[in-house]
Design a protein around this nucleic acid. Sequence first.
DNA 1: CAGAATCCGTGGGGATACTG
DNA 2: CAGTATCCCCACGGATTCTG
Lengths: 139, 139
Amino acid sequence: MSVEVGVGAGRTADTAATSDTAAEAFEKEACPLAEVLDHVAGKWSIGVLVAVAHGPVRFTELERIVEGISRRMLTLTLRRLERDGLLIRTVYPTVPPKVEYSLTDMARELHGTLRALTEWAERHRGEIAAARVRYDAAR
Amino acid sequence: MSVEVGVGAGRTADTAATSDTAAEAFEKEACPLAEVLDHVAGKWSIGVLVAVAHGPVRFTELERIVEGISRRMLTLTLRRLERDGLLIRTVYPTVPPKVEYSLTDMARELHGTLRALTEWAERHRGEIAAARVRYDAAR
DNA sequence: CAGAATCCGTGGGGATACTG
DNA sequence: CAGTATCCCCACGGATTCTG
């Protein structure tokens, strides 16, 4: 996804003119947000995160739970989340191999925070759908 | 972005076996979350949303505030947010034309919810960076 | 079982020129 | 000023095959 909100190469004083509050808010709020999304966005991250949230899950389980995901994308998503310190990968040196994924504390916290978004979505699901119909009807 | 978390075409009873709690949580939580992200994700949406949050902003202002955005993407992002009922577009029939964007109540609520994410990001920024360094160093 | 490697298409997004 | 319209590219992601 990327979400490079662009911290801006420091506007020179003479170009800064209108709506400074909006610009300041943008720089203060948008960037950290972009960071979160850069870790969490990407078509599958959320799905994997939520699926892993309830205790250790194995690779193949995830492949089944997160429906529609390809083997490749599951691997990539897991690697990325692990790299960002959101997932713990535990390998059991058995044969056949067994690998379990679980959330770090940091990720569990994030998972809680995301719940607020879920609730927002559920509260406004209808309103959004209605807005779309209205918008589409108007052309 | 898409985030099609895949509600799944209803697993047949015989295929459902392992880790049902994770699977159930996935279906209950991931999907609404995917919906939010489908409206809010997409490299520029958050930036625009935050920039618009502080009162009516004009098109050109946004083009300057949201640094790096192209004229094309700004338009597309605005249209999408408007369609989802998150933005209000007000046209003043003057010459030259003047168009102002502002958040709907629903979007303002969302903006508040996103603040929790911002805080999470700021709290764990260092931790994430450290995790990355550690991960990259380990190969 | 849990991946790594390879090939390939699709569309998201950048740059630019034009217009009411 | 506030957009459309057009061209083009490449990175994301799907399908498939191979392996420790």
